[in-house]
Every structure is written in C-alpha cells, then in structure tokens.
Design a protein around this nucleic acid. Structure first.
Lengths: 344, 344
DNA sequence: GTGAAAGCGCTAACAC
DNA sequence: GTGTTAGCGCTTTCAC
C-alpha cells in the first residue's frame, strides 16, 4: 500500500524522479536510480494501476471480444484465450474477456469508451462485421484474429483457409480421389458471412476445377446428429464419393460414428480429413482422423502482438498475417479402393 | 470523451449531483435525475473506469487465477472461463485472466497489490495452496472454485467429489458389479494434494468398504497412451474387474480405444463411466460413455457470485457450496456378464 | 540530472 | 435535495 511519494521520501528524491526511474522516460543518474529501487523494494512498492492509467491515459489492459454462438466451445477457443492472456501478460498487459452473446457493437463501445482498455482483439470475425465499423468510426485501436471482406488498414492474423483447403484437396487428389464431399458448417453460418466457411467453400470449388475432379459442398449443423445425418444425404446425392473433408468439429463425431454404422471403415472404404481443427481433436477418434490443425496458440500470440505493437508504434505499417494449417497425418485418408461398392 | 463535468454543465447541475445520480448513492429529485440522464446520453457519456476506480478505490475488475498445468485444456475449463466472464459482466464487473504457469503466489500478489482487481477467483485449488496463504495474509478478498484442506473463512464452490464418487460406485454396485477399477490422474497430481484426486480416491475406498466390494485405484497420466497402457496393468492385477470408473478426460480416449483393441465391448464385456467430465466429453465416443457431468458453467457462475457478494457485503456469512455431478446415462454401463472371460 | 506542481476524471466528505 | 472541494496516486510539462 505504499505510494510513490513514500518511495520518494525514503529515497530522498522527488516524486517525479521516482516516476522517471520506473518508466525510464528520462535519464536518471545511476546513484539515484539505485536509491530509488532500494526504497521501492524496502517498501515493496507496487505502482497503482488505476492511478497510472488515469494519469497516463493508458490502462495497459487489452480487451478480448469473444462472441459466443452456437458454434460453441471447442478446444481451439480455449487455446486462443489462454494464448492471448499469456502473450498479453508477457508484454506487460492484462487481458479482459468480453464473452458477449451478441455481435452487437453496443457493449463493445461501452468497453472502449470507458477507458478501460487500450485496444481490442476481435475473435470470430464476420466478413462484414458491425464491430469493425464501430471501432473504425471511433478510431479505436484493434486487431483481429480472423478477417473481413474489406480489411484495409486493419492488423489481423487469420488461418490461411485458402491454402489449407487447397492443400487438403490436393492431398486427396494426389491420393487418387476424384469425387469429394466437403462437409462445412451450417447454411446460416455461411449466409451470415462467416469467413472460414465462405472462404473454404470458394476455394474448395476452385480447386476442384483446377484438378478437374468432382465434388460438392454439404452444409451441416453443429451436432453429432447433424454429422450423422449429413452422411445419408451425401451418399444419396453423390454415390461415387470416396473422400470426405470436414470443417465442423462438433459434427465430426457423428460423421465418424455414422461411417462406422454404415459399415465403412477408414481409410479402406472412404477417406476422411478434418480441417482447421485443434491438433487434439483428430486423436479423439478411432481410427484417429488426419487433421489440418489450426495453430491456435500461435495465432492468439500473434494477434496480441499485433495489437500491442500498434498501440506502442502507431506509425508501423499494417500487418496482415495468414497462417496455414499443418497436416497431421493420422492415417484416415488413403488411396481410394478400385472398386467402390455403392450402398443404399 | 465527455467527462462528468461536461454532463454537469449541460444538465445545469454540479458534478457531485451527476455522480450521485449515476451511483444512486444519495437521493436525487426526479426532475434533476431526468435532466442528468438526458445530458448523459446527449453527450453519450461513459464514466471513465480508471478515474472512477482511483477515486472510489474499487476497480470493479475481478481476477481469475488459472494455473495451467499438464492436466491441460479441456472443454470444462473454457466453460468455466466463459461462465465466469459472463457472470462478472452481468454483475457490473469485468474479468481479467491470469493464466499463470505457476502456482507461485508472486505474480498473484503483484496483481492484487497494483489495485487492479477488487478480488480474485482461484481455480485449480490445491489441498494446501500457497495462493490461499498469500491472499489470506493480505486479507485480500477471494473466492475459490475448488477447495483446500482447511477452508475456514473462505467462500468456495466445488464439485461434490465425495457424493459424485459415491453415487458412481453405488450405481455400479447396484448394477451388480463387485470388482471395480478407478482410473484417476497421475500419482504426482495426487501427491501434490490436488483435491479432486485426493477426495475421490478416499471416497472410492470408503464406498467399496460400505458395499463390501473389491476395487483398486490406478494412477494414470494425462494422455491417450497412458490410458491405453493402464488397461494392461488393470487386467493383470485385477483380472476379475467388471467395471471401470475414470476421472481423467485426457486418458479416456486411450481407455475406450484400448478396450476396443482388447476385444471388449461396452457395456457387454465391461462397464465404463467417466466422472467429473464435461457433459460433452462422453458423447465423443463410440459407444458414448456414461458421464457424471460437472456443471462447469454453474460453478463458475456461483464462484463469481460468491466473490461479488463478498465484495459488496463483507459482513455476509461465509458460503461453501458443493455441487454434485449429474449422471448422464449414455449406456456404457450395464450389469456384468455372468461369465467374464479373462484374457491375457 | 532533478524538482514542483498541474492535472487525469471521478467519489465522497462536508457544507448548506 | 444540491453544491463545493479535497483528494485518489500517478504522469508529465515546465522550470532550474
């Protein structure tokens, strides 16, 4: 509970000298510096965060805006949150969580206008995100984990969905598959402009054309039951399918189980890969599922670093980073059987 | 960026009147109150968090202390974090995350002594937790999600491990099982005094005695491989075993897979239940695993409410809440086969 | 290289 | 029921 003036008194210097000694914002003679630090830990002094924030107009707190939706919670999200908090801490910042249920920018504005946070990190960014407009209008510092349709002037780090999807299709094509099904998230998610879905769908279609192979996109809800159900649709509409790509962790269970129920075994009868999943999701299954794993912690770290850098060096050029997923081969994909038995 | 004096000027009242109108800490005539609020949203005024914090000595920020260990990340943890943030927000507080890698109280002290947080919520509490000593010595407000050996004077909410374990054993005993194996976490975890492990082990042993049935405890690391490996040990040491209880989400995959590899099918050849897991973990498996599910969000909510209540009503009596897990029957446990074939 | 002092925007006595 | 004002603990300009 010691204050800066206690320290000043004990060290026999003025308050401002103590302040400068702490912040290094102006030269201090070695002798005084030592006396000041000695006084500081004699009193076990801790600068008062609120006072400092009020005077300096910088709270050294970052906000993590985290809209929770029915996409729900997975391993990836926690890795993000923890990674972000760690990185913030390492950079001398604290992280506050805004797990607001809506993408409405209202509460976000409240947060920023209260002077509580110096900057905001946006997660689960939509192609056309109201939060972005709001923050831009306020000229409030922010960075995104994810990206919009128009990202001009915005620092972000995102999964490189395009290269990941392209890698995945190429991988399956190279194995000899010529009829793919891409199981993505719900139609509503697509319609809402959620980048990961929009981008992967686009790239899927393009890459099919490039390789001149067949394929179709299947929208699928976020439950095991939905995953299970989508299989019947796929096998009806596309009986020649030999490989499945999924980017829907919640449905994956249902897909794996459904395949087993239908008597398909991986990878002998059909191939399956999961995209943009946690490194850990694939190994939950039997057999484990080959995963294009999203580097969540690294993205969180980069997102926070981007924001801190922007706050401390406003003039730095904008940085926009795309991180591809790395494939973890778990053996659930292989060359297609020459004779694929079609079932009803 | 309007300040309280802008509001006062526009409303034609003094700053203190505005302050009191906002905080309701003293009676204001309806007419003035209206004028003040009109001025506030004409200027879209937001009180400055730091200034308010400095003057009132209350930041309205809560710290969530979250030591991350090799027990690692699961669904449960994120549910806690999000639940806590939500509840804090609903109560007019913000939540900052301290995902510190150590249980060392040092950084925790820093956090508390900087006046950044009004109180702290401790997660992953050890039986004899150094953070508790530290916080107590400082007379710093805190609540726990979890509990220690000595909880005198501390508000906490915890899983009722005792009743959960007892319920689970009774459930299996009622099905007719007479030889149980409890697969818990690592021996180090036990030795470190981690409550969930310590308590469930104790209750397991007691409940066996009460029911006069056989059983043993198996320590198991936090990986699928460990889960897989422990099965061989179990079947060697306890060939008559007919039911498994697990409280180790990371190893569960390995257990389920290992059982399948060994040719056991659930629940025909052996029964399996998982304890204190996320509601969602059990359904990841095939067949799904009967789960004694921990109400993570509810516990997080209660933990935060306990702390907020303590802050706002320091005189309230201490509250210590135990929440039992609720069983979600997924069919992985059944009566034992009359003839259990022992395998090598 | 160091000190004095004016705020930062708010709360909470203390006055009336 | 309302106004005045002295801080809260720090940063930072200005002066020396």
């Amino acid at each position: 509970m010691a204050t800066i003036s206690d320290v000043a008194r004990v060290a026999g210097v003025s308050v401002s000298t103590v302040s400068y000694a702490i912040n290094g914002s102006r030269p201090i003679s070695e002798a005084t510096r030592l006396r000041v630090f000695a006084a500081m830990d004699a009193l076990s002094y801790q600068p008062h965060a609120m006072a400092r924030g009020l005077a300096s107009k910088r709270s050294r707190i970052l906000g993590l805006h985290f809209p929770m939706e029915d996409r729900g919670l997975g391993f990836t999200e926690l890795e993000f949150v923890v990674g972000a908090a760690d990185t913030a801490f390492a950079g001398g910042y604290h992280l506050i969580l805004s797990p607001l249920m809506s993408e409405q920018p209202r509460e976000l504005l409240q947060l920023t206008q209260q002077g509580l946070v110096d900057g905001v990190i946006l997660m689960e960014v939509l192609q056309d995100d109201p939060r972005v407009e709001a923050l831009r209008a306020l000229r409030f510092p922010f960075a995104m984990i994810g990206r919009c349709a128009d990202n001009r002037g915005i620092d972000y780090v995102d999964t490189d969905f395009e290269s990941t999807m392209s890698d995945a299709v190429c991988y399956l094509a190279a194995l000899g598959h010529t009829s793919l099904a891409y199981i993505t998230q719900s139609h509503q998610t697509f319609d809402s402009g959620y980048g990961p879905v929009v981008r992967t769908c686009a790239t899927f279609t393009q890459t099919l054309l490039q390789h001149d192979i067949a394929g179709a996109i299947y929208f699928c809800g976020a439950s095991a039951a939905d995953g299970n159900a989508i299989l019947r649709t796929i096998f009806e509409e596309q009986p020649a399918v030999t490989a499945l790509l999924a980017m829907n962790d919640r449905a994956l269970v249902g897909i794996v189980q459904g395949l087993d129920d239908l008597g398909y075994s991986l990878p002998a009868d059909i191939s399956l890969v999961t995209l943009v999943s946690s490194m850990r999701i694939g190994e939950l299954f039997r057999p484990p599922v080959t995963t294009f794993a999203v580097p969540s912690s690294e993205m969180a770290r980069l997102g926070v670093e981007l924001l801190i850098d922007r706050l401390e060096n406003p003039a730095h050029p904008i940085r926009q980073l795309l991180i591809p997923c790395t494939m973890v081969d778990q053996g659930s994909a292989a060359a297609p059987a020459h004779m694929h038995v079609v079932r009803v």
